[in-house]
């Protein structure tokens, strides 16, 4: 166990020292580090759901989008201070999870994937057409960043460390949640619903709590995104963004919590390098995605386990 913990500590130390280690810190800390953390938290909400309920959701951007738009509208259009606008946004995003969960949790597998994708694309068309509220295709610009104790989080390093703190807190809480009896019951539901029903568990409330919790994470990520990009527009919740997120989750490892961050860091670096060679870097991302799906469906985090299994199989066959 200590070895595992030391790995985490090593990664943590690297993350903290990151802004002082990279060349071009202006670029890499913000467009590399902060971006990866924001995407990572969004992806985490997706892998939490996949890991604990066995459901692959493309609806996380819906929750992010709701909270992002509410931060943007309240702070830019109505001048609400972030102390009010941020909790309001996160609350609204989380509550929207109850509504969507009520419909989506009746379905499973591919249906769930399709339904959640349709939900996100529904928000996209709403954001595009409800010009009076969302300013349509233009979107909302100049979203102000919070200032706490005189620290302006618009600056590169404060924003990075704020995002790092948020990411670590959420990650740790997810880990904790999974170790509670609630977390164990969830895994039971994922593996065999009928058995859990027979054991006297009420399935839907369990699923609903997990789903709403993932909506909470996605809503927090939505606020992070609004502050990071300083703009929100319908494209922030479009099809390409949804697939991007899916790529991060799958490439990192959809059944590992840490996979979200591994995937996010990898994709951010991958795109930064590839786009120096071609403007069609999204195609390269797609190819990477397919290769991972075909060869290593458990993602990068799962590669060592996959090798171990393959070797055990070989050894077993040899005997």
């Amino acid at each position: 166990m200590t070895k595992v913990r030391s790995t985490y500590l090593l990664l943590l130390a690297m993350a903290i020292a990151f802004p002082y280690l990279v060349p071009d810190p202006d670029f890499w800390v913000s467009s590399g580090g902060s971006r990866a953390l924001w995407l990572g938290v969004t992806a985490l909400s997706m892998s939490f759901l996949n890991r604990n309920l066995g459901l692959m959701s493309l609806g996380q951007l819906f929750f992010s989008g709701i909270s992002g738009y509410i931060v943007a509208i309240s702070s830019v259009t109505y001048g609400v201070k972030f102390g009010t606008s941020v909790p309001l946004a996160i609350l609204a995003g989380t509550l929207s999870g109850v509504v969507i969960g009520f419909i989506a949790l009746k379905t499973k597998g591919v249906y769930f994937l399709m339904l959640t994708l349709a939900v996100t694309l529904g928000l996209y068309s709403f954001a595009n057409s409800a010009q009076e509220i969302t300013r349509g295709h233009t979107g909302i610009n100049s979203i102000p960043s919070p200032v706490i104790f005189g620290i302006d989080f618009a600056y590169t390093k404060p924003m990075y460390y704020l995002f790092l703190l948020i990411a670590i807190t959420i990650f740790t809480f997810c880990k904790f949640l999974e170790s509670t009896s609630f977390g164990i019951a969830l895994k039971g539901v994922r593996d065999n619903e009928d058995r859990m029903t027979a054991m006297g568990y009420r399935i839907l409330p369990l699923k609903m709590i997990a789903f709403v919790f993932s909506a909470l994470i996605a809503s927090i990520a939505g606020v992070m995104g609004a502050f990071y990009v300083t703009n929100i527009s319908p494209d922030s919740v479009g099809l390409i963004r949804s697939i991007d997120l899916l790529v991060i989750v799958v490439v990192g490892g959809a059944t590992y919590l840490g996979g979200a961050f591994v995937g996010a860091a990898l994709i951010v670096v991958f795109e930064a390098i590839v786009q120096d060679f071609t403007q069609y870097y999204v195609a390269a991302t797609g190819a990477l995605f397919i290769i991972v799906l075909m060869l290593a469906p458990q993602g990068l985090m799962g590669i060592s386990a996959q090798f171990r299994r393959a070797r055990a199989k070989k050894l077993g066959a040899a005997k």
Partner: peptide, 25 residues
């Protein structure tokens, strides 16, 4: 992977990304 519904769906999403950019190019 024909009998793994979700994996197939995801692979086709990847195909759509590549096709979209390829056609654009």
């Amino acid at each position: 992977f024909q009998y793994e519904e979700l994996r197939v769906a995801l692979i086709t999403l990847g195909v759509s990304l590549i096709l979209a950019q390829g056609m654009l190019a």
